[in-house]
Design a protein around this nucleic acid. Sequence first.
DNA 1: TACTGATTGTTAAAGGAGTGACAGGATGAA
DNA 2: TTCATCCTGTCACTCCTTTAACAATCAGTA
Lengths: 209, 209
Amino acid sequence: MEKQNIPDIVIERLPVYLQALNQLLREGQAVVSSAELGHLVDVSAAQIRKDLSYFGGFGKQGSGYNVISLIDNLRAILHLNQIWPVVIIGVGNLGQALLRYQGFARKGFEIVLACDNNPDLVGTTISGLKISDVRNLAEDLRLLNIRVAILTVPAECAQNVTDMLVSYGIKAILNYAPLVLKVPESVHVINIDPVVKLQTLTYYLETED
Amino acid sequence: MEKQNIPDIVIERLPVYLQALNQLLREGQAVVSSAELGHLVDVSAAQIRKDLSYFGGFGKQGSGYNVISLIDNLRAILHLNQIWPVVIIGVGNLGQALLRYQGFARKGFEIVLACDNNPDLVGTTISGLKISDVRNLAEDLRLLNIRVAILTVPAECAQNVTDMLVSYGIKAILNYAPLVLKVPESVHVINIDPVVKLQTLTYYLETED
DNA sequence: TACTGATTGTTAAAGGAGTGACAGGATGAA
DNA sequence: TTCATCCTGTCACTCCTTTAACAATCAGTA
């Protein structure tokens, strides 16, 4: 209902706010002002208030935002009140590292499936999860009701794999492969190729070397 | 000289264009139109022409852009005509995966230093590189003339490590730690916490589960 | 209760970014 | 050479995002 009118860029900031709020919670802070939160995440206070006001008035004049309650609201907005089952496609270096990463579980995600096409890998266990054969992907995804995928395969097969994922009902892809994936409008993709990000950074560096 | 007036968002698109152009080069295509390139990277043709025109007229009316020459120009703009030495700070799962990743070398970067504070790791060799003690960081960075860092340490120590890096002359940080780093204006940071990206994606998913 | 200080939600204005349209140059064919 | 076609670079316009300002409201104190 609310979805269509709210800019993507606002949505991208919400998880960052959530991150900072969780830190405040750990430190035992009960209330935070837009100015203080803005300082933590490097966003202007006015912008934070405007972003949050898209979803309703969560703050209290004179004091600010209740940390716990704002966390709850943001989690609801971002649909983080459930644990999302996630598949990792491609268990190379990066896929294995993500499998071992302990940061997903507490943040609303659980890696419940990891698959590869390498017969040496299929059947082995990494971080408590048995690597599945990509040939079973359709059934695995259906049985586990997975709609979120992390794609860590080589660029050469990334589009093929993506087409499979889309046809099997995947709706969100976190893409580590170095290319722009073609997907239907109903599927959401975020790219995080480290090389692209580094190449953005070097633009700003002096080259007198 | 050109730097100040060009929007960050334009700069962020350039490496993506470069990625697609390299693919065209591998496929042997000599010339590309803004429309075709736009289709590859999911950007409008007008936007590509406008982005490129910030830096000069690289195209030819009637035919389009010469692939090789546009690659050369973009590489120059992004300062990729040199190999940038890079340090990886924190050799946990993710740091090790990035160390083993072969995708940096051909794209303008070389991991020349990896360090950690874990005595069990220091001195071991991963992917041909001997892990250095973080206590030697100041000298290592100076000797190797490193200005680009990849940060893969736990959130708890990320800001401390960042302060060290900044004081030792690091100017660009690719931050995998789940927090917003505080740095001086002269230092550039890009964040790629996978959890933040996933949490952005789930906003767009139906929650009837 | 009345007053002071603080902070939100909202509105209007300012500032940036994206789009559409087209003049003008390049190419190739007749 | 002339003509028809193609595609860039750019300008004006529209749309989107951010900022600044302030009325409304809350909490604490006297």
